[in-house]
Design a protein around this nucleic acid. Structure first.
Lengths: 234, 234
DNA sequence: GACGATCACACCCCCAGGGGTGTGGTCGCG
DNA sequence: CGCGACCACACCCCTGGGGGTGTGATCGTC
């Protein structure tokens, strides 16, 4: 469908100014982890962060949407991610990259779907290619797995466990978490059980408090309120 | 058992220095409410607050233990409330004052059990009498009901509803809340149902977050940790 | 006197939550 | 190559949580 990028390949983009990239995720530590990962490439990609509540200094060329704890799946509303007067190109940055879902997102207007398993140089190349007009779907190459940071990682939670606990800390039910993460409710329950063992709680209320204490809450300013427009799950 | 104080009665305590009173409750707004109620009587009672994490300037003569969200019932460990080199006299300040429970507390070493329904002048009189050596059990007189402040009052929660939500926000189960408040689990469930309607949540996780957002958490410094000695429920 | 609010509690019922156990796949490491 | 971790999911089972409805008492307000 879309030719995958071979490892080490670098697109030849003849431009002097870096691509303006907005990182889009409600968890500060996720955004910080991505920013740290991209910092060595600041001559090629410059980060402008949205959703901080303050107006952005300049609009983004590309939005990099990290799916951690965010709506994902076939109902994801791509157009709401395209912000600014010049509608930014949207890259879905996800762990579980399945072909049919990626195709749906591309049909809906995403410019690219990239796996979190990509090394940073490949990610930067891909951002530049998207900026230049290409459409990409890049699964993680075998053998390379530079994982980012996520909340709860230092407490021994895997990324999926942390994501599930983060959504519990947001007050979601198992069914809502399954919808948000595009997993089955049985998978969600499995992650819940193993996460509870790791963080040493035995009830959902205690998990909520653990999440609050360990920064697993999305930014309060990003909480959907009655007046706040956000992309909505059906 | 103990002669109740008539409304308006004032004990004749011939002393010039005020009674040093420690207010004892883990919720700041409860302690603030009590302090405000007693502020006009500062020539008679001087407040020294314990459990703030800082060493107190001087030891208390009397500890006023507000039962909101705290262990209450026949297993309450009175001796752990008596702090300082000169063991302070303990007053249990509770809403539901039943005679047999009050008798148990007095047997266990409490100097007095006072109802929260008492007017401030009567409360101050009682504190002075306790300091002077008397033992009291004072139910609320009919017709007078100067309620203090409690968390959630401005959101329309009654004191018992607020207490139950505060304990949910601490991660307790219904059974644990029933034990802590000395109520039946059916009463706890009734308060939960009515509180959920008032605060607009429909799950326990959301109630925990509501409590966190509205200051219904006990002071974190007062949370029992592995090294921190506190009175323990069996 | 009637009514509403609060406190206290009982009883019935349904289901979400979470425990256990199991399967299968991929991948990194010793 | 074997093992453990992680991801994904299924199935069974029990219980706590919470919805509904009801009772009774006290108290303040109209």
């Amino acid at each position: 469908m879309f030719p995958p990028l071979a490892s080490g390949y670098r697109v030849d983009v003849t431009t002097d100014t870096p691509v303006l990239v907005a990182l889009r995720n409600d968890y500060e530590i996720v955004v910080e982890g991505l920013a740290q990962m991209l910092a060595p490439f600041s001559e090629r990609v410059a980060l402008v962060e949205l959703d901080s509540g303050a107006p952005v200094a300049r609009p983004a060329d590309v939005v990099l949407y990290d799916t951690f704890g965010q709506p994902q799946g076939e109902h994801l509303d791509i157009s709401s991610l395209q912000v600014g007067p010049a509608r930014a190109k949207v890259i879905i940055y996800t762990w579980a990259l399945e072909a049919t879902l990626a195709a749906t997102w591309i049909d809906r207007g995403a410019a690219a779907c990239l796996s979190k398993g990509l090394p940073a140089p490949v990610l930067v190349d891909a951002i530049e290619r998207v900026h230049a007009g290409e459409r990409l779907v890049l699964p993680a190459p075998a053998g390379e797995n530079p994982r980012g940071r996520w909340p709860g990682r230092s407490e021994g939670l895997s990324e999926r466990e942390a994501e599930v606990v983060a959504l519990i800390a947001e007050g979601l039910s198992n069914e809502a978490i399954a919808g948000r993460t595009h997993l089955s409710i049985n998978s969600v329950k499995s992650y819940i059980r193993s996460a509870y063992r790791k963080i040493g709680v035995d009830s959902r209320s205690q998990a909520v408090l653990w999440g609050v204490d360990h920064g697993l809450l999305a930014k309060r300013s990003r909480r959907p309120g009655p007046d706040e427009e956000r992309f909505v799950l059906p």
